[in-house]
């Protein structure tokens, strides 16, 4: 790897760290209802939304009400996106006269965007009208991210608060243990965090050449005519356009990942320059990293947030190293053909198959690890063409449960579930009362945290097993041997952890995969958010015990190491056998 390669990774991580505290502090103010510099501009809009929707913003909700509101809102959004796709041929803003999306693909896509996964079984430019992209997909990019943020903030309140009665009149089903108001958290997430950041990023992306237009596609003459497979001379090309920049900004910031165009951020109209690449990569991890600081501020001890961020970063860094090393080392099959894979001033070297020459090895591998660490799923290179160990790094980051930064909100609440496990196990081992931030961790919290960790594992492994043993599943696998298994495992790891990226070699736009992956995405999103909110409700009812001699400190390097061990051991135990049959054996076969 070149010096510039190391410098690029270092610059990226440095910028991310520098932005963590200011954004994290700002988000803490937003969620604690404090004044921000956007108050004068956005407060009237916020009040209007509450009045228009009938939301009683001053009321606290107990966890059941909060979870029910989340489910109802998401179900309605999902059905709207489904309807938009099925009716797009008769709706406006469809200059290319695209037909209605098939029912199974419409279901898969609606689920995908409502669950913040953004798995795409379609090509955007040939399938989705502008109306569907904007009113359906982009809107879901905002509200699905805001849903994740809301669930996290509710959990943090459960950890931070002392028991207090709900406001009068109480919400149905509870008299104490309020964890906030879902409608307020959703609205403030969108208005104060996602919209302003997306606006700034979209402008920056447009300045770099990302397209933003309602105009129809353009047909242009090729500078150099080519001959196609039928010996016909091709002199023209149709360039797909559309309102891309506005969708790409939130696709990255909201850890959504769904590309406007089929090739996602490898497309020159989505990601034209090295600067746009850096900005988009930063946007992927920005909010998930900053939320760690937000968490620390909200619980009154920023050291707790830094400790969690440190644990995430320590897992992330080696995965970046592994992916970059694997790709930069090149492909032995190319070496046998005499291809020069040495890095030099004239070429990036390494395994450049499936990568954009304007990004090279480092920015492709760094993006692949960031996007899979963050449950984002956007790509600027084709992961299917990565070396086996490069693909393994991306796949394993998803399989850890998307807790290494993870999705906006969902990443940190997943990591806090691991923290609960870590605290409980450590407490048992040393004979201390398991507690976190002064709240006792008891059997109920352990059961819920176990659900959060085990459900995605179950979904991924069972889904993969069913796919490879059924004709409907195996018919989509074009690569024989371990790489074919890797493709199926990657697909279910992606859907079962709400990531959305793909090993593109699998034909996933079939009724089997559209339905199976759709179900995986639904379970992975909502059947994790519900136990998380249940933990929040349970903790909110508990008194905070003052720290004493028997308290396990959870901000120390020792606890960070322990937390990493718990995350890695669970991830390794659950997925090592499957990985051994896929990327690991493929790596060994390549070297044989």
């Amino acid at each position: 790897m070149t010096t510039f390669g190391w410098l690029q990774i270092g610059l990226y991580l440095l910028l991310l760290l520098l932005l963590t505290k200011p954004l994290g502090a700002y988000m803490a103010r937003v969620y604690q209802g404090e004044r921000t510099f956007l108050e004068a501009l956005l407060r009237p809009m916020e009040q209007f939304i509450y009045r228009a929707s009938g939301a009683r913003a001053q009321d606290e909700m107990d966890w059941k009400t909060y979870a029910t509101a989340m489910l109802v809102f998401n179900a309605l959004g999902l059905l709207v996106v489904y309807a938009l796709q099925r009716l797009q041929d008769v709706l406006p803003l469809n200059p290319q006269d695209l037909s209605a999306v098939s029912p199974d693909l419409a279901f898969n896509t609606a689920v995908s965007f409502a669950t913040n996964t953004n798995w795409q079984g379609y090509s955007g430019e040939t399938t989705m009208s502008y109306l569907t992209q904007m009113l359906g997909l982009t809107v879901q990019n905002f509200v699905s991210a805001a849903t994740g943020l809301a669930a996290l903030v509710a959990l943090v309140r459960g950890l931070a608060r002392r028991p207090a009665p709900l406001s009068s009149p109480p919400q149905a089903g509870g008299t104490e243990g309020g964890i906030g108001n879902f409608w307020v958290d959703l609205t403030r997430s969108v208005l104060y965090i996602l919209l302003p950041l997306s606006f700034l990023l979209a402008l920056a992306l447009v300045s770099q050449g990302v397209v933003q237009t309602f105009g129809s596609y353009r047909t242009v003459s090729l500078l150099q005519p080519i001959t196609d497979a039928n010996d016909q001379t091709v002199t023209q090309q149709t360039l797909a356009l559309g309102p891309a920049a506005s969708q790409i900004a939130i696709k990255q910031l909201g850890t959504n990942g769904g590309g406007f165009f089929s090739t996602n951020s490898a497309h020159p109209f989505e990601n034209p320059t090295p600067l746009s690449n850096l900005l988009e990569m930063l946007a992927i991890l920005l909010i998930p990293a900053a939320l760690c600081y937000t968490f620390g501020r909200m619980v009154g001890d920023t050291r707790q947030g830094w400790a969690v961020l440190a644990a995430m970063s320590i897992v992330f860094a080696p995965m970046v190293g592994l992916a970059v090393w694997a790709e930069q080392s090149g492909n032995p099959a190319f070496a046998r053909l005499g291809v020069d894979q040495t890095a030099s001033d004239l070429q990036a070297g390494g395994n450049m198959e499936g990568k954009e020459v304007r990004f090279g090895i480092v920015n492709s591998a760094l993006w692949a690890t960031a996007t899979t660490a963050a449950s984002n799923g956007s790509v600027n290179a084709m992961h299917d063409s990565f070396m086996p160990l490069g693909g393994l790094a991306a796949m394993w980051l998803m399989q850890l449960g998307e807790v290494v930064y993870g999705g906006v909100g969902s990443g940190l609440y997943g990591m806090l579930a691991f923290v609960i496990i870590a605290v409980f196990v450590a407490g048992l081992m040393v004979g201390r009362t398991p507690e976190y931030l002064g709240k006792k961790i008891e059997a109920f919290e352990m059961k819920m945290a176990s659900l959060v960790i085990l459900i995605p594992v179950l979904v991924v492994l069972v889904g993969t097993a069913v796919a490879v043993v059924t004709p409907a599943g195996s018919a989509s696998v074009f690569n024989p041997g371990p790489h074919g298994l890797s493709e199926v495992l990657y697909a279910f790891s992606s859907a079962g952890n709400n990531n959305g990226s793909a090993f593109a070699g699998l034909n996933a736009n079939t009724p089997f995969y559209n339905v199976a992956l759709g179900l995986a995405m639904l379970i992975a999103r909502y059947w994790l958010a519900i136990p998380v909110l249940a933990i929040a409700g349970s903790l909110a009812r508990k008194n905070k015990a003052p720290a004493g001699a028997g308290t396990l400190p959870t901000h120390t390097p020792l606890f960070v190491v322990w937390l990493i061990a718990v995350v890695v051991i669970v991830g390794a135990l659950a997925f090592l056998p499957a990985l051994a049959l896929g990327p690991l054996v493929e790596h060994l076969m390549l070297g044989a």
């Binding site: 998401n74 489904y82 099925r86 029912p103 419409a106 059947w527």
Partner: peptide, 30 residues
């Protein structure tokens, strides 16, 4: 017909999810 199948599928999933809330609440209450 397909539309009905998928819409019902989604509604059933969310109904089961509401049931999961109730199960979690019962577990919480011991």
């Amino acid at each position: 017909m397909h539309d009905l199948v998928f819409v019902v599928f989604v509604l059933v999933f969310f109904a089961v999810s509401l049931g999961l809330i109730a199960v979690c609440q019962r577990l919480m209450e011991g």
